[in-house]
Design a binder for these strands. Structure first.
Lengths: 255, 255
DNA sequence: TTTGTAATGTGTCTTTCTAACACAATGTAG
DNA sequence: CTACATTGTGTTAGAAAGACACATTACAAA
């Protein structure tokens, strides 16, 4: 499935839709921190969002699924298109030319890789522990970054990340997100940390619990998580049916 | 600025980004009805959304502005990107081939116009009275349609329209829309009809007024609208500064 | 073993927003 | 000049959000 960098760059013009790409903002949650999966391309100074091209007979969304699968090993995940970025200034021909040359290819002016690119942005929510970050042929590193510590990114990828986060925040009160980001069993404080890191602000513990339980998508288990330094909190899991329903019809208080 | 149909079809490959277009869902409001501007292409059976291609050195959003300007004569309007449509099934090569042939051009298999197209969807809110619908060279008609009476549309344009409306509805509680759709002076009932037609449901007159006034973006004038069959309602206009602020920072109750 | 501490489990009160509804005022049509 | 539909302006009830209090519990330090 995965082809080597040189062959992709060489044959891309015949394989892919010209001038169009997808970029994925892949969010994970670990150690009470929101993480983003970033890629370090060879010969590039900055890190970048994992992205890819669209085969001529491939659904655009499927290209995003493919990127996700190949970078995390995960399939069947929460994926949402959020914005398309088409600014003229977002294409860096010099960088791409360097990539071409370093792959031993001719940097012909008409080369498909040197044209202007418009990119469709997707964001994904994945289970951190289940994902195994792996670089592709053209990149030298692939790793999780703390959202707080994300370095300056390639091109407009900083803007893309920002817009993804903004979209996620806006949609947070309409759709459930925990299932994709948390392990199967989790505590209420853990769920709260997740919301707090996404929103970037503190929430009241008691009001938060009331709201979440009101959505009716949680089941409290008999187990508690012991081992912590204090009172052992209950474990919860999601009620799969109700969770799916909330994904389709939105979150609503149900008393 | 506007070129004739044949020349566009012939030279498009050199002028435009390949395989990418913009489509605009242009909303207007008149006679207490929400309207959409539709286009009837020559040789096409169905009506379609006004759309266009993106010049190789043009911002994608600017292409949308250009479409709007050329179909309505309006500039400086409310315009929002809402979704990008890339389904494989959305390209109708047969129709495009017919268009080519009817323009006296060779329908070469590699012709730029016969490739798969991905389209970026924008929706616009415009002042109905200020807009002058005008067809372009490749279309035989351009007209406002009642949202209720929109005929079956070309390709996936029905889906695009639906998604635009859905997006508009979701954003209605976050951002003000009246300024773009209403004349400068308007009555509270008129503003309410606007919201009702967008949302597709009835609202309580008194609760609506309280909510709107609470946003603090309206100024009540001393005038009333007489001539109606009943009690003359007050006229309102928008407080431009506060309206702009609401566009940037969202609508919030301010008491 | 005891006790202090920091976290969790649960409940109350207040404020804000939404929803449902009542009544007086007014302009035109008949 | 009267009937009526529509507007202007309330009130009240319920739901959701926000702020806060107190008892419970598990580990850790004494």
């Amino acid at each position: 499935m995965e082809e080597n960098a040189g062959s992709i760059l060489q044959n891309g013009g015949a394989l892919f839709l010209p001038g169009l790409s997808v970029d994925c903002v892949i969010f994970g949650f670990h150690d009470n921190q929101l993480k983003v999966l970033l890629l370090k391309m060879r010969h590039a100074e900055k890190w970048a969002l994992p992205g890819g091209f669209i085969y001529k007979e491939e659904e655009v969304e499927h290209a995003a699924v493919r990127v996700l699968q190949s970078r995390t090993g995960l399939s069947n995940i929460f994926l949402r298109q959020f914005h398309t970025f088409g600014e003229l200034s977002r294409t860096d021909k010099l960088l791409n030319k360097k990539l071409l040359v370093s792959s031993g290819l001719q940097a012909d002016e008409n080369h498909w890789f040197l044209q202007r690119f418009v990119t469709v942005g997707y964001y994904a929510l994945v289970n951190f522990s289940g994902a195994v970050p792996r670089p592709d042929a053209t990149s030298e590193a692939c790793a999780w970054w703390d959202l707080q510590e994300v370095p300056p990114l390639n091109l407009d990828h900083g803007d893309i990340l920002q817009k993804a986060l903004e979209t996620l925040r806006k949609q947070l009160s309409d759709q459930p997100v925990g299932y994709s980001l948390l392990p199967e069993k989790f505590t209420m404080p853990e769920l709260q940390r997740l919301y707090e890191t996404i929103l970037g602000k503190q929430l009241d513990r008691r009001n938060f619990q009331r709201r979440m339980l009101g959505y009716g998508i949680l089941k409290r288990l008999e187990e508690r998580r012991s081992g912590g330094a204090h009172k052992a909190p209950y474990l919860y899991c999601f009620d799969t049916d109700r969770y799916q329903d909330a994904l389709l019809n939105g979150l609503q208080q149900k008393w």
